[in-house]
Write a protein that binds this DNA or RNA. Structure first.
Lengths: 154, 154
DNA sequence: TATTGTTATACTCTATAACTATA
DNA sequence: TATAGTTATAGAGTATAACAATA
């Protein structure tokens, strides 16, 4: 039998005290989601933030940058970079608005629609991979619970 | 009736295309959790990261910094800062190990135990607040689902 | 040679504040 | 005066790489 040491480091390290919190488990899962999303979108030439912006512009043609900022819950200064990136890749266009020359009307280009379709498929595959341990019913339950919490804490 | 504009910005902006993804809803919820956790722990003199480190050290007496890094899934260089912070606040002690003078055996102090007890209560209240829209059964379901995903994607 | 803790550095994401041009 | 977009800057969090002491 091995001789005991003075201050032996634990052979196995546990984190049960943190696992009791839903938030800790959410953080662990979210970190994996984020890392995998970054890798998933890289071949499509998108970052997570530009993917999200593209989705909102596609759904809301002629949206302004300020509205986009509100939808994504980020500051206006942050969307400038996102819109620059998408415009430089010819995925969206900044169109001038008649009647108010301060703002732009954002529109997804044809190239942008194609990029979105491809990215959307990649992200669906990503979620199938990450939530593979859950049955379709469980995935739907998780999805609904998360959405309800977000809606309730506005 | 108001005259139509050339390129009118949408009156209401939606994000249904993103809401279809569980990951997007998780991000929205997680951002709120993180922000509220930061505020919750501030009066206890802790950051989210030091709170987590304190929990793991309390649960695994004489753990080394490298083991702590593995448990928290961060780099060793990152735990140096966390351990410094906790040690400077007298919440933990870096004890020398007989037999290996390279590593420390980390231990929570009495003050650290008291700080943990207080912080734990604060975080329980924080979760009750944030997940108030869910019934106890739903909260438990969410908790279990998140934990299963994390366990399955190791 | 390998490992522990450490330091310096850099990178990502996001927020704050000040500026411009328009309204 | 107020608003849309912009720029510069800073902060938080984390990772990478190189180093000294020790094994």
């Amino acid at each position: 039998m091995p001789e005991p040491k003075a201050a032996p480091a634990p052979a196995e390290v546990t984190d049960e005290r943190l696992r009791q919190f839903a938030g800790y488990n959410m953080k662990r899962v979210y970190m994996k989601v984020r890392a995998d999303m970054t890798e998933t979108l890289a071949p499509a030439g998108l970052r997570v933030a530009t993917f999200s912006a593209l989705a909102v512009i596609l759904e809301n043609p002629d949206i302004t940058q300020t509205q986009l900022a509100q939808a994504l819950k980020v500051e206006r200064s942050g969307v400038v970079v996102l819109v620059d990136e998408l415009e430089n890749a010819d995925l969206i266009a900044r169109n001038r608005v008649k009647g108010d020359r301060r703002s732009y009307a954002l529109r997804v280009t044809l190239k942008g629609r194609r990029a979105w379709a491809r990215a959307e498929a990649l992200v669906h595959a990503h979620e199938a991979r990450l939530f593979a341990a859950l049955s379709p019913e469980e995935r739907e339950r998780l999805h609904a619970l998360l959405r309800r919490i977000d809606g309730a804490t506005d």
